[in-house]
Structures are given as structure tokens and as C-alpha cells.
Amino acid sequence: MSLLWLVIRQLAEIEAMAASKKLITREEWEKKLSDVKIRKEDMNKLVMNFLVTEGYVEAAEKFRMESGTEPDIDLATITDRMAVKKAVQSGNVEDAIEKVNDLNPEILDTNPQLFFHLQQQRLIELIRNGKVEEALEFAQEELAPRGEENQSFLEELERTVALLAFEDVSNCPVGELLDISQRLKTASEVNAAILTSQSHEKDPKLPSLLKMLLCAQNQLDEKAAYPRVNDLSTATLEDPAV
């Protein structure tokens, strides 16, 4: 019987805690929001940052003309960067390496991991195209020496060379290396390295701000009931559940 009372008391405490959460009405919330001022130039810079980082060069050019917001890098370099990204995504790794070196030879010299991943992607493409002898020669001459120097490269090399042992890739435990997602992963890594070399952030600021918003909301949920933004695409405030 005493156990039952204990449970009832705990439930009562939980309810009391829930009741003690501060309730903020829509009017209060909207009033507080209207008091916050954001400069238009800052908004435009965020948009430009997004367009530049994601490589929408034509949109960035138009946005510059219409809003007068100057990008923080030369827009011509975006075209080059996107050409590299596109080359990797379509499996032309040799072409991509050449383009990166034209853009800035230091990128691959100072980033052995990126260079290894590009070479690995090249090996994957040779295997995909059934060029077994060429793939072997390439692995022996280009990848094995680098693998010896670095344990994590060695493991990647092992996984990649293992593709040769499987005729039917659907049954291959490392078959995901032949997926398009692997190309995208490598392309994304190259893209980030080029941006870093241009003293530019690897990721756009806008998604980071949205992440911060969600994080702050989650923290606030513990302390108050308030109008929440649940759908980021519409950004509509939803009334708190009372």
C-alpha cells in the first residue's frame, strides 16, 4: 500500500513540475520577436555566403547585381571549384586532380588524406569499368606506397582492393564503395579542401544558424511552453500545447 502512495506522490510531483513550466503566449512571443532587429545587409551576406559556398555561381552573380552584396571570393573560382566537384561526381578523377592542381597545386601537396582518397576513387573507377590489370598496376604503384606510411590508408586500400575478389558486387561486403554516394563523399571532401585553401568556411553559415535555432528550442522546451518553429521550410510559429 505504501508503495502505491509513493508512486502517486511521484506522479503528483511530475505534474507539479509540468505545471511550473512558464507559459508564453503567442502575443508575448511575437512582441519579443518584433523587438529583435536584424540588418538587411547581414541577411544578404548570409544568402551570398550560402550561394558561394554551395557553388551557385550564376545566382550569386545575379544576387550581387541586384542586392549590391559583394562576395568574399572571386566568383570565377567558384566555376573552377564546381568543375572539379562535377568531374569527381561523374568519375573523371584524373581530370579532377588536374583541375585542382591548376587551381592551387598546394591543395593536394598539403593534404595527403585528400590525395589518397582521390587516388582511391580513381582505383574504384578502374575496377567499376572492369580494367583489372590497369587497376592492379595503379594500386601497386600509387596506393600501396602510401598505404605503407599510414595505417588508416592501409585499411581503406584493403577494402578497395577487395572489390577485385567479387564478380557480383551485390554480394560484396564492401560494395558500397561502388555506389554513387562514395563519389559524392569524395567530391564533397575536395570541395571543402578548395574552400579552405581560399580561406573560406567549408560549410555555409545559414544551415549552422538553423541548427542553433533547433538546439536553443530544445533547451528552452525544458523550461517553458512557447510558440515553436517546427517546420523550418515554412518557419511558422505553432501555439504551445497547454
Binding site: L136, A139, L143, A144, E158, V161, A162, L164
Partner: peptide, 9 residues
């Protein structure tokens, strides 16, 4: 298997 296949390289 991976380890042994890598001897090809």
C-alpha cells in the same frame, strides 16, 4: 579476406 587480397597490391 581483405588482408590477403591486398597482397595483390
Amino acid at each position: 579476406l581483405q588482408r590477403v587480397i591486398a597482397t595483390l597490391a
